[in-house]
Design a protein around this nucleic acid. Structure first.
Length: 906
RNA sequence: GCCCAGUUGGCGCAGCGGUAGCGCGUUCCCUUGACAUGGGAAAGGUCAGAGGUUCAAUCCCUCUACUGGGCACCA
């Protein structure tokens, strides 16, 4: 042991255990009838991704829970998998193809493109999982255990869900105003649209009367859509526009005549009070349009280009067209005014482009029936959120929900399992040739007669006409559709597997709050709908890891920290621990590299404490049992502190408060165990070595066990080294035993006594330090106290004090001989006189005592005032009054000691 | 606009009815055989502001001011 390095070196240790754990399959979970399972399904990362700090935090939290529960004796199963990631993944590959091969997916065609996507999945799809090992996460990533949202079993679940919902008429196709991303070229659901506040302009535009009159001035932020106008609307209650309804105006820059109508949805007082109605490009206008039977004219294509408009603007990009239109309106005298206007613009959550409200036929899931039981579960708190404040927004969202648009016009994803007979559905189908000349279905219109056949595979025969030629719906499902099924699909639902029966419902869902609606809500919907059971009861919403200034980490800001770089530099345990100590429930983490340094130092502290204990164990033979009884005060005290730390660590972990859990262990080990107990134990190695070592080893081992879920490598490494002393040769994870605190070992009396000794020592040390007493110099100190109890404690533990204060001559009594050149220090009812012949600086000591006198006086005044307040005496609990009295006495002692010391110096 | 969080020493954060703690940083002393990735000590805060409840408020209530976040069709 002596030749071991002085500092902990994580690299080799991590390598060793990573290999060992992989080979031993230590992370595998099995169906064990009768044993209680604990299950977390991993939020499947997109296959585009590499690991970022968010994962590092999130997955470490899951890992701590899994390991803890396993050590608590449960069959803990952490289910791994990846997500195909729909639009996000397709975007990444499209960009890659454009950059490397200068081709679009349309150049390649659907089939070829999908081939490339699948190849990507095979090559890189599990990339993120290989990073799992480096983080020490207890996840069994052997290929047969890793699920993928688009593999065969998951596809079966997706089909079953679609089929059941179709049969229940939850799934339907409808023509609606949906959110369209002109860049990704697909519909999006409402929650996939993010709103960003943008400084825009409100343009006031005059629509001249059709009869040549003055007409009306409208206000709009989107002048390029005037070509799609079907009317101008005013509020019937608007006194400025009385009796205008029925009049006609002309759209500027065109010859088109539209009516003025009245509608209550027009807000009084906004803009000019007159609203142009563009049913095809605005959700509100669409509703108004339907009410008034207005035509919906599209002037912006699915690619964001102008159509159905004056020739000049045809084919123009929507943004360019806005500028041009404004210019032309101004030139022609129609532009009345421009004012700045802040506007919340909807943008695509995947690419950030402005969302276009777009009228089209899409697939939807009806939400009403699916949401009702979710609302009930959340309201009755069968489904619980940590932190709980998410309950309200969750419920609000569910209660105001719109039907879920599930069709996406991309290629990467689960294809909608709907087929059309080319002869029966002929009128509702539109085909065009793709770039390869293959006939491709481009539009399906139920309105025009497309008849759906829901089937996983191509149907053999058309049930109505007997035809054999079918085409499949070209759209794919929202990627969240398969994610929604994750807690059941990972166990191969709809098959009735024994895993499903044993491991479902899962226990805890650990995920970021940013996907509470996108994902969490929908998992609960499917779980309740298909199994009648909540997929999980606890939702632990984790924080966002930000940069040290509190900004979100992003590639564009260049403030991204790679967790793997940090593990290289400081070791995995340090990275994990630094995240955990900051993981306060409901609080984002501003992450600075300094915090890993702190945790790295902690690893080193653990390592060196262990090294020291081992060194002093010498030839003692294990296994060493935890002594049944404390022999000395310090033993009783450290056992109390140890117990307390274990209790806190466990309780807080199970309450998802990892910061409290990890900090309890950190401070116990460093401050109590190392700074005080080991220091005091040093003097007992000569006299009582075996006993002290037994206590040290067992407390250390128990602490390592409690730390293991947080720092798996270093704890296991040291446990291995301690093996001859502990006799434990099983890995912590296989021991099924979390170190339990022991009620009999709480010892308030010992804690109180030890606090006195620590306080006295600290007071004396302060004097040493303030007068720069050379470290080698041993002092003569006399302690004086009239408190018999405290005197007894001091006297009985003179050796503690002598050791830690470096005392040559120690005396304690009710009175004490104070040498003239002494400094005075007070703690509780004990006054210490520290001889400083030749060292003491009289002026300095006077100043010090003067300061003490001032503070003591202030404290005395404060306590006296309180004690003389009869309302306080009448109302405060007796123990509180006692406390203040004790404090008063202590302050009075401090004052009188300082005063008399000052007198002696004069 | 509505809702929710936050505002505590230089910085980052805990705490939460009995006048404040941690980590980092700062200053001083120390290579005392586990650890300088260390030890000992010190300085530094009227707990955002104003009211209220209470014997007592950083902690509970109300309002205000900032800072984040969620939701919302205001063109």
């Amino acid at each position: 042991m002596a030749e071991l390095p002085k500092a902990y070196e994580p690299k080799e240790v991590e390598k060793k255990f990573t290999r060992k754990w992989k080979e031993s399959g230590i992370y595998k979970a099995r169906v064990v009838p009768g044993k209680q399972p604990y299950v977390i399904v991993v939020p499947p990362p997109n296959i585009t991704g590499s690991l970022h700090m968010g994962h590092a935090l999130n997955w470490t939290l899951q890992d701590v829970l899994i390991r803890t529960q396993r050590m608590l004796g449960k069959e803990a199963f952490w289910v791994p998998g990846t997500d195909h990631g729909g639009i996000a993944t397709q975007n990444v590959l499209e960009k890659k193809l454009a950059k490397e091969q200068h081709v679009t997916r349309h150049d390649l065609g659907r089939e070829k493109f999908l081939e490339i996507m699948w190849q990507w999945y095979k090559d890189c799809g599990n990339m993120i999982l290989t990073q799992v090992e480096k983080m020490g996460w207890a996840l069994d990533i052997s290929p047969e255990n890793v699920r993928f949202t688009m593999d065969e079993k998951r596809a079966a679940a997706v089909y079953e869900c679609f089929k059941q919902w179709w049969d229940k008429k939850y799934i339907y196709r409808g023509k609606r105003m949906i959110n369209w991303c002109v860049r990704c070229n697909t519909a999006l659901s409402d929650i996939e649209v993010e709103h960003s506040e943008q400084k825009g302009k409100l343009y006031h535009i005059r629509y001249a009367g059709a009869d040549g009159g003055k007409g009306i001035v409208i206000a709009t932020t989107r002048p390029e859509t005037i070509f799609a106008d079907a009317a101008v609307a005013v509020n019937p209650k608007d006194d400025n526009y009385k009796n205008l309804a029925g009049q006609k105006v002309k759209i500027p820059l065109t010859d088109r005549i539209i009516p003025i109508i009245e509608d209550e949805d027009v807000e009084l007082g906004f803009g000019t009070g007159a609203l142009k109605i563009t049913p095809a490009h605005d959700p509100v206008d669409y509703v108004i349009g339907q009410r008034h039977n207005l035509e919906a004219i599209s002037v912006i294509s699915d690619k964001g280009k102008m159509i159905n408009c004056p020739a000049k603007y045809l084919g123009m990009d929507r943004d360019t067209c806005r500028k041009e239109t404004v210019k032309d309106l101004d030139a022609a005298g129609f532009l009345v005014k421009e004012e700045t206007h802040d506007n919340a613009v909807g943008v695509c959550y995947r690419c950030g482009s402005a969302i276009e409200p777009y009228l089209s036929e899409q697939w939807f899931v009806k939400m009403e029936e699916l949401c009702a039981p979710v609302i009930k579960a959340a309201e009755e708190e069968e489904l619980k959120f940590y932190p709980s404040r998410w309950k309200t927004p969750f419920l609000n969202w569910l209660k105001n929900i719109q039907d879920w648009c599930i069709s996406r016009q991309i290629w990467w994803g689960h294809r909608i399992p709907v087929w059309y007979c080319t002869s029966c559905s002929k009128d509702g189908l539109t085909f065009t040739a793709d770039k390869q000349g293959n006939k491709q279905i481009t539009k399906i219109s139920f309105e025009h007669g497309a008849k759906p056949l829901v089937s996983h595979d191509k149907p053999a025969k058309c049930p109505s006409c007997g035809g054999h030629d079918f085409v499949q719906d070209p759209d794919v499902l929202d990627t969240w559709f398969s994610s929604a099924l994750w807690p059941i699909s990972v166990f191969d639902w709809p098959e009735k597997t024994k895993e499903l029966e044993y491991f479902y419902p899962t226990s805890t869902m650990v995920t970021g709050y940013e996907i509470i609606y996108l994902w969490v809500a929908r998992m609960v919907m499917t779980g309740l709908d298909f199994t009648g059971k909540l997929p999980f009861k606890d939702v632990f919403l984790t924080s966002i890891v930000r940069d040290k200034t509190g900004k979100k980490m992003s590639k564009s800001l260049g403030n991204v920290i790679d967790p793997l770089d940090l593990t290289e530099k400081y070791g995995t345990d340090a990275v994990r621990f630094s995240l955990l100590t900051q993981a306060v429930l409901g609080k984002d983490i501003p992450y600075a590299e300094e915090s890993v340094v702190g945790s790295r130092n902690f690893c080193n502290k653990i390592y060196n404490a262990s090294r020291f204990i081992l060194m002093n164990a010498g030839d003692i033979k294990g296994p060493l049992k935890m002594p049944a009884k404390p022999k000395e005060l310090a033993d009783a005290w450290i056992l109390d502190r140890y117990n307390c730390a274990l209790q806190t660590a466990k309780e807080q972990t199970l309450k998802f408060n990892m910061a409290a859990a990890s900090n309890a262990l950190y401070h116990f080990l460093w401050n109590d165990f190392c700074d005080w107990y080991i220091e005091l134990a040093k003097q007992r190695f000569e006299t009582d070595r075996e006993y002290v070592v037994s206590l040290l080893v067992n407390i250390l081992y128990g602490t390592l066990k409690a730390l293991h879920p947080m720092m798996p490598f270093i704890t296991e490494e040291i446990a291995g080294v301690l093996k001859p002393l502990t006799g434990s040769d099983k890995e912590f994870l296989l021991q099924d035993s979390y170190p339990l605190h022991d009620e009999t070992r709480f010892n308030a009396d010992a804690v109180k006594k030890m606090e006195l000794i620590k306080g006295v020592i600290s007071a004396a040390r302060t004097v040493r330090s303030e007068f720069n007493v050379p470290p080698g110099l041993k002092l003569n100190i006399s302690f004086k106290t009239e408190d018999a109890g405290e005197l007894k404690i001091i006297t009985e533990h003179a050796d503690y004090i002598k050791l830690l204060c470096k005392i040559e001559n120690f005396s304690a009594g009710k009175t004490a001989v104070k040498k003239p050149k002494s400094a005075t220090a007070v703690f509780s009812n004990v006054t210490a006189y520290i001889e400083l012949e030749g060292i003491i600086d009289i002026e300095k000591e006077k100043a010090r005592l003067g300061k003490n006198i001032i503070s003591a006086k202030a404290n005395i005044d404060n306590r006296r005032a309180r004690l003389s307040d009869e309302r306080f005496i009448k109302n405060a609990p007796p123990e509180q009054i006692e406390k203040v009295k004790t404090e008063l006495a202590a302050e009075e002692l401090k004052l009188s000691s300082a005063q008399s010391a000052l007198k002696d110096l004069a």
